[in-house]
Design a protein around this nucleic acid. Structure first.
Length: 572
DNA sequence: GCCGTTTTCGGCCCGACTGTTTTCAGTCG
């Protein structure tokens, strides 16, 4: 039972309660509890099983929710949820994905027409039965017919690495307009979340029409979903939706702060304004009717007695308290990265030679790299056995002599096998400059076996780092079940580093686990896992993840020199 | 359903836009 499993019970319960019209604050309590569970690294099951610990010490968890967590952990089920599920079929929740359809309207469709799936909603709309309902009309019915097919596929989030460049294209186009003074991408994209639901673009202009027309006619835009005086919502050809907001120049900072979010961060900010007798909204900070701040984000934060907070930290996970203490970290930047310690070549499943990868890395400004091809267990990637690996290393030695200006480490990405042994013998690993140990197979094994495997790798004196520690693939595959706090303790005890794998579909460690590793003094390594020269460019997304974790240059081992890196490796 | 030097009740952030209303509820971010 992982924290995310418990959290998803509460999220589903909140959705169902919303359709039932329950007290909104009660619904919020369930969502906030889910959030709280997702924000911790320690397994909630461990706490629930420890008589000396109290679930009610967790933020947003009181008497009722702690009992519910205990039930879920003990039985894997939550009776209240199962009861609601029998009342409200799963297809009803799908209806929430239709634009303009919230819990109230879905409740009407379910309650009066007894519709229980998107397909049934479509049929009812085709028959004209929906426009006859009170509170519904022709436009609602047309909107349903227009969007119902897309809604079947909706709800998907897009990798930051895909979304951000699209948003940037639009931003640049808007910035070229005469009427536009400033343009920024806001929302989760600006916070550099690993995935983005929709895009928010903010523009400062005295006249909103030119910017809205420009977006409506942009080749990336497929449909205008809604358009008002200052706000426009469109669907891009990629399927992503984008909101454009146009605000006066004097309000741009407040609007940027507001639309960057997160919602949770903003709630605390507005409460803070209230406590000071002020009001904060997207137009500024107001003392009565008087505008106190609004043109810049910096001024908005100062108006509530805080320094500016980097967008990546704005999740209400302690950043406001840190800002109050003037203890915000100076976040890592992509330029700080001096080495890349995870990449593949044609020796296994890469597309470029050792030399090409080294030359490309040098052109990226890197000072050192590790060549880390797969070990033999990864047969589909043509993984290397001991003999092949030693030959590969000799080839690296030859390239070392030819290519100057960059250090090349002889590395290996060694599988941690299902039986908790390593895929290569100790004497081979001992000859490596850099060993990444990883889980590729058997990720569904029970927690105890996953722990056994990770601990055996951590205890092996030749292992430098655990690569993509959870093994998750974002949106496709959950990571292995583990109490990450226990893994952290072992890694800290044995001097093993942990990787943030920068590939957009991995970003593993995630931000929360990376921050927890930092708190235990474990050096973090951010690696591209490149399989081609172009793959080296994903480093920036790993840096985004590190920034969200609040990491500084000194927290990241490959943001230092190679000598410094060696100094932080445990002695072999 | 949670929370608390205003604590066991009464709060819990704020505004734009849409569609269906005839002054506003629902949705969205």
């Amino acid at each position: 039972m992982q924290n995310r499993d418990v959290a998803s019970h509460f999220e589903e319960l909140a959705d169902l309660l919303e359709i039932r019209g329950a007290n909104p604050f009660r619904i919020r309590a369930y969502r906030s509890a889910a959030r709280s569970l997702l924000a911790m690294v320690e397994s909630v099951a461990t706490i629930a099983g420890d008589p000396d610990r109290n679930l009610q010490d967790l933020p947003g968890i009181g008497k009722d929710l702690s009992a519910k967590i205990q039930t879920i952990v003990d039985t894997g089920r939550l009776p209240q949820l199962e009861e609601l599920r029998t009342e409200i079929p799963a297809g009803v929740l799908d209806m929430l994905r239709l634009p303009g359809m919230g819990p109230k309207k879905v409740a009407v469709l379910f309650g009066t027409l007894e519709l229980t799936s998107l397909e049934q909603v479509k049929q009812a709309a085709l028959q004209g039965r929906i426009s006859e309902l009170k509170g519904f009309g022709q436009k609602t019915e047309q909107s349903i017919l227009k969007h119902v097919d897309a809604a079947v596929a909706a709800g998907k989030r897009t990798f930051l690495a895909t979304a951000q460049p699209e948003a940037e294209v639009v931003r640049q186009r808007l910035l070229d307009l005469d009427s536009v003074a400033q343009a920024e991408v806001a929302g989760s994209c600006r916070r550099r979340r690993e995935t983005v639901g929709d895009l928010d673009v903010l523009v400062a202009a005295d006249d909103s029409q030119e910017a809205m027309d420009c977006l409506a006619e942009h080749p990336l835009v497929q449909d205008v979903l809604a358009r008002g005086e200052t706000k426009q919502r469109v669907r891009l050809t990629s399927g992503m939706e984008m909101d454009l907001r146009v605000v006066p120049i004097a309000s741009f900072g407040a609007a940027l702060q507001y639309f960057t979010g997160s919602k949770e961060h903003n709630i605390v900010m507005r409460r803070r304004a209230q406590e000071r007798g002020l009001k904060l909204n997207e137009y500024g900070v107001f003392d009565g009717d008087r505008l106190v701040a609004g043109a810049t984000e910096d001024a908005v934060y100062r108006a509530v007695d805080l320094p500016w907070i980097p967008p990546e930290l704005r999740e209400d996970r302690g950043e406001i308290e840190a800002a109050e203490r003037d203890a915000l970290p100076t976040l890592l930047q992509t330029d700080d990265i001096r080495g890349d310690l995870h990449m593949h070549t044609t020796a296994t499943d890469g597309t470029a030679s050792i030399r090409e990868m080294a030359e490309s890395a040098k052109a990226c400004g890197l000072e050192y790299i590790a060549i880390t091809d797969h070990s033999k267990r990864v047969t589909m990637a043509n993984g290397l056995d001991a003999e092949q690996l030693r030959a590969h290393w000799r080839e690296i030695d030859r390239v070392r002599e030819d290519v100057t200006g960059i250090e090349i480490l002889r590395g290996i990405e060694c599988d941690i096998l299902e039986d908790a042994t390593l895929d290569l013998p100790d004497d081979v690993l001992a000859e490596a400059d850099w060993v990444i140990a990883v889980l590729h197979y058997g990720l569904q094994q029970p927690r105890a076996q996953i722990h056994k495997r990770l601990l055996s790798a951590i205890r092996c004196p030749h292992v430098s780092v655990i690569g993509h520690p959870s093994g998750r693939l974002i949106g496709r595959r959950a990571g292995a079940d583990m109490d990450f706090d226990e893994i952290l303790k072992a890694a800290a005890d044995h001097g093993v580093m942990l990787e943030i794998n920068a590939h957009p579909s991995r970003l593993d460690l995630d931000d929360i686990r990376a921050a927890a590793a930092r708190d235990r003094g474990i050096p973090i390594v951010i690696n591209s896992d490149a399989h081609s020269p172009a793959g080296l460019n994903v480093m920036q997304w790993g840096v985004c993840q590190a920034r969200r974790a609040g990491l500084t240059r000194s927290d990241v081992a490959n943001a230092g020199s190679l000598d410094a890196l060696r100094g932080r490796m445990r002695s072999k």
